[in-house]
Amino acid sequence: MKSEIRIALADDHRLIRSGMKSILNSCSDFKVVQEAANGQELLDGLTEAKPDVILLDLEMPVLTGKEALEMIRKESEQIKVLILTMHQSKAFIVQMMELGANGYLVKDCDPEEVIAAIEKVYHHDYYFSEKVSLAMLGGITDPALKATAMLKSHGLNEREVEVLRLICEEKTTPEIGEALFLSPKTIEGYRKSLLEKSGVRNMAGLVLFAVKHGLVEV
């Protein structure tokens, strides 16, 4: 385990930020390093605060969470962004994942879930809650979506599909290497080519890609 995880909070309700802050700071691994009341404040403070993970609300004045996410992804793929919002509809979830969010949390979740999600995105690059998996499954049972997914064949070879399946099982690079009798370096290569071929931004996007193409069972 690495040193503490640096966290930024962006939400327009001060009380929600302070509540969240006290919950997160009670975990010894976490440190809240930035608080922002809107997307612009968040962007302005990023260089100085250098957070590892951002908890991002969507509905904020001045600059919304969606706009802030787009700006962040223009600059960096490294910062992990965890969406924390009241919206729980599929369309919002899928859109945020496609824009490069690493995970999606609905605001009325339990504190344990927030903590688990932060650890997951930090260590595994993505987090999907039960709700989100269900939402994506719902997307696949939608005949129109299924048809487009079938139409756009995924274009991956067998090995890449294997690696992708293991990524979806939250396996790390060395673990995948062990399972497939390959070196971690080779697996890194597969991760890169997977990102290139699927045209997504991060591992969260890859999981979404896998679900959309029916390569994994949710």
Partner: peptide, 16 residues
């Protein structure tokens, strides 16, 4: 976005 968010924050604090 207002009342829903605040209620969620309240729930988060209480369950903590």
């Amino acid at each position: 976005d207002g009342i829903g968010s605040l209620l969620s924050g309240l729930k988060l604090n209480l369950s903590h």
